[in-house]
Design a protein around this nucleic acid. Structure first.
Lengths: 157, 157
DNA sequence: ATGTTCACTGGGCAGTCTGTTCAGTGATAC
DNA sequence: GTATCACTGAACAGACTGCCCAGTGAACAT
């Protein structure tokens, strides 16, 4: 569960140059190939590395508008609302947060006008009491993990 | 910019089995290897596929607590606040949203108690007027892209 | 001190994939 | 009618992967 310095270097290297192979990594890190391979296997079976899926940019797909909707759910309707939102492709992520049945919902849309359609579809469901939406304008820090990995690796040293 | 059905199948296949190679993909999809290769190159140079970085689970790294902080920024301090937050490893993502200088900030922490430390570090900066935090409890829909890809592929058909 | 366990090293092997190139084909656009 | 484009099927050398092995060194328990 805790990662050491070598694990950290492996992850960071992989994050910076994903197409790199195990052999090249072992060369860069100055360790044997078998070591890198064993570490990678361990990191994956630990669940630290979930996978290497493609990172798709919704904007490039034609969905340049991102928004967050805060939903207030009627007591006991949580499960239904989740199932409903899971069927909406524009819902990229759904989280339940502290607060009385609150959910936070990450949305994308083809345009600001299209966002209205998406929101209507999201909230057009019994069980949602109230919704407020904030449109994302800029993304100064895109979803990242490297600094955290480096800190986790340093902590274990 | 628009993706067709084959592009969609490539992305979905890649998302489901990231370790798959171009050759195996071409077999599964029933097209020539060169086609898959050309499509992949195009998707990447288009920016639709940003990369194949490892998906790291913060929880497995020892950061099981996720929270969202809404920050209200003093006029004109936006750039400074961004630079500040970029230096905090526990800040996984930062977005500016509609509203008077508002930012939304995705955080992780080692525990609820540790979250206090993180939040103190986040808001311990001149220029942040107010902050409110919501702790994430569940994640019914983890960050996903497949449904959107499928819809984008279907739309172009 | 002795023995065990574990991770790492460095080597080797067969099998497979990648990057690249090429000519041929069909559909589409001009 | 012709140029353009994407796709096919094939080929090639080079590189990588998965897997195996024996040897070494450190940490740990006996």
């Amino acid at each position: 569960m805790a990662i050491d310095h070598l694990d950290g270097r492996i992850i960071v290297l992989l994050a910076r140059e994903p197409r790199i192979g195990v052999l090249e990594m072992s060369r860069r890190l100055g360790v044997a190939r078998g070591t890198v391979q064993a570490r990678l296997d361990r990191l994956q079976s630990n669940g630290v590395i979930r996978g290497f899926g493609p990172q798709v940019d919704p904007a490039a797909l034609g969905y340049p508008v991102t928004a967050f909707a805060t939903l207030q759910i009627r007591q006991g309707q949580g499960a239904d609302v989740r199932a409903h939102l899971a069927t909406v492709p524009e819902v990229l992520e759904l989280l339940t947060t502290t607060g009385s049945g609150d959910m936070l919902c990450r949305l994308v849309a083809r345009s600001n006008a299209d966002l209205q359609r998406v929101i209507d579809r999201v909230i057009g469901f019994d069980g949602i009491v109230r919704a407020s939406t904030a449109i994302v304008m800029e993304n100064p820090v895109p979803l990242r993990i490297i600094p955290l990995v480096e800190q986790a690796a340093a902590d274990s040293a």
